[in-house]
Each structure stands twice: as structure tokens, then as C-alpha cells.
């Protein structure tokens, strides 16, 4: 066997486990889901075939389409707010916190990852409730005269999400910021740039890949989550994952649930393509 052939064989050997994994746990299940999305229900039985009815319904039934719109709206708001909050936090940890305290700061940043997602959501319910910690504090300080209605609203859902994703984004942005040589800022300032100009034209562009990676992960995880909207949103509006859960757990309508899942995947794929093309994630 020639060295080139041996090298190719070794290469295939090395990627084979990953390919098998991808095939078994993504491509095959996805193909099954895609096929199922074109089936339909008759009584309580799945009838296989090529029926685009589920997709037609998703885009023509107001209840279904609104769920898609709700998901995208909530996800965009959460992603933007999380980035706005996480960037300064990461910058403070990277540039203002002394090296010896940065570990502690990061520890505090990842603490929310250590608690159960469901428990965290219920905890927020107690904080945001009419008689919750927040309202009591605001009433006690005399800042409001009547309790704010936050629990069981979209605002509560966004707060719950942002709390979690700010931590994720802080990590991704911090990892980028810490790798930046201070010479970039010094060079910019030597050339007469002020602090804001240095940030706007040097620091921000160099850390954008980290920001977008974090924002994309936020997008993916947020748009696929049904627990937070269910617990904190009070089911006052439905998101796409909630609708999928309803179709599966309650209706047993796996074809419609599959079609909704395919639409969800398409939205995520679109978000990936947009962000990857725009900001070259491969550099991160």
C-alpha cells in the first residue's frame, strides 16, 4: 500500500467514529422525522405517504404560525438583551478584575449552570410573582404603588432566559477578550484613537466572532426551549417547542410534531447560515 493510500485509510479511520455517530444519532433520526412529517393521522393511526398538509397547516393556521412568530420574537429579544448585558460583564472580568479574582468571577458567572433548569424557572416564578421578592422590594422602597404583573407574561419568559444566557455569552466573550493582545489598544491609542474609537474600531470587530458564536448558541438553545415559556410565561402564548410538545404528549400527532420540528430546524439552519456567512465563525 502506498503511503498516500495508507494516509487516506488512516484519515477515514480517524473520522469514522464521528461519521458513524452523526449517521446514527442525527442523519437517520432526521430522515425518519422528515419522512414522518409528510404522513398524516387517520383516527389515532399514523398514515405514511407524501402529504404536505402539515406544512400547509403550519403556515396557514393562525395558532400554529403565531407560535413560530412568538418563538422568533422571544429568541431575538433574548439574544440581543443577553449580548448587551454580557459584553460589559465579560469586559469587566477580563480587563478590570485583577487576575487573581478572575477565577472567582468566572465561578460566579457559571453558577447558574449548576442548578436544575426547572428549579431555576420555578425560583424565578417566586421572585417575579405578585407577592414575590422583586415586588416586595420595589413596594418597600416606595418605587411602585401596586405590584407589577410580571409572572406569567412574556417579560418573565425573557428574564428567565436572559439570566441563563448572559452567563453563556459572558464565557464566550470573555474567552475572546482574554486572548486579545493589549498591544492592539495601545497601537490604536498611539495613532490617536480615543477609548470609544478603540473599542468601536479595534476591540469590537476582533471580538465579534465570540459574540456571534455566543449569540448563535443562545438562539439555538432559546428557540428550542419549552420549559421556560411554559413555567414563566404562564402558557399565555405558545411557542413552537410548546406546540411540538402538545402535539406529541397530548395529541399523539407525531406527523404534525415532526413537521413543526423540521420548521424549527430550518429556522435554526437559517440563523446559522446568516451568522456563519456574515461573521465567519470558522475563525473562532
Amino acid at each position: 500500500m502506498s503511503p498516500a493510500a495508507r494516509e487516506r485509510r488512516q484519515g477515514w479511520g480517524l473520522v469514522a467514529p464521528a461519521l458513524i455517530w452523526l449517521l446514527a444519532f442525527f442523519l437517520i433520526p432526521f430522515a425518519v422525522m422528515l419522512a414522518l412529517s409528510f404522513a398524516h393521522m387517520e383516527e389515532r393511526t399514523v398514515v405514511h405517504g407524501f402529504d404536505p398538509g402539515n406544512y400547509v397547516r403550519i403556515f396557514t393556521d393562525w395558532t400554529m404560525f403565531k407560535a413560530l412568530v412568538n418563538s422568533i420574537e422571544i429568541t431575538l429579544v433574548v439574544s440581543v438583551v443577553s449580548v448587551i448585558l454580557a459584553y460589559p460583564l465579560a469586559a469587566i472580568i477580563a480587563f478590570r478584575v485583577p487576575k487573581r479574582w478572575q477565577r472567582l468571577a468566572l465561578l460566579l458567572a457559571v453558577l447558574p449552570f449548576w442548578t436544575s433548569y426547572v428549579v431555576r424557572s420555578y425560583a424565578w416564578l417566586l421572585v417575579l410573582g405578585q407577592n414575590g421578592v422583586l415586588n416586595k422590594a420595589l413596594l418597600g422602597l416606595g418605587l411602585i404603588s401596586a405590584p407589577l404583573e410580571i409572572a406569567a407574561t412574556r417579560t418573565a419568559t425573557v428574564i428567565g432566559f436572559v439570566h441563563f444566557f448572559v452567563m453563556l455569552l459572558t464565557l464566550t466573550i470573555y474567552a475572546n477578550l482574554i486572548q486579545l493582545s493589549p498591544n492592539y489598544a495601545r497601537a490604536a491609542q498611539d495613532l490617536g484613537a480615543g477609548r470609544f474609537q478603540t473599542f468601536r474600531h479595534v476591540i469590537l470587530p476582533l471580538t465579534l466572532p465570540g459574540v456571534v458564536t455566543g449569540a448563535f448558541l443562545t438562539f439555538v438553545l432559546c428557540i428550542g426551549d419549552y420549559i421556560t415559556p411554559q413555567i414563566l410565561g404562564g402558557n399565555n402564548e405558545l411557542t413552537l417547542p410548546q406546540l411540538i410538545m402538545l402535539q406529541m404528549g397530548r395529541g399523539g400527532n407525531f406527523p404534525l410534531a415532526s413537521a413543526l420540528s423540521v420548521v424549527l430546524m430550518l429556522v435554526v439552519t437559517l440563523a446559522y447560515l446568516l451568522s456563519a456567512r456574515w461573521l465567519r465563525l470558522d475563525r473562532v
Binding site: Y122, L125, L126, G129, Q130, N131, G132, E149, A151, A152, Q230, I231, G234, N235, N236
Partner: peptide
């Protein structure tokens, strides 16, 4: 105010 499962409803009643 909400359409909720058992735990969320109980929590809302209790609080």
C-alpha cells in the same frame, strides 16, 4: 392570569 400545570397552579395559589 395563566393556564398552568399542577405545580405552577399550586405555586400561584400558594403565593
Amino acid at each position: 392570569k395563566q393556564v398552568s400545570d399542577v405545580v405552577s397552579s399550586q405555586t400561584a395559589l400558594a403565593t
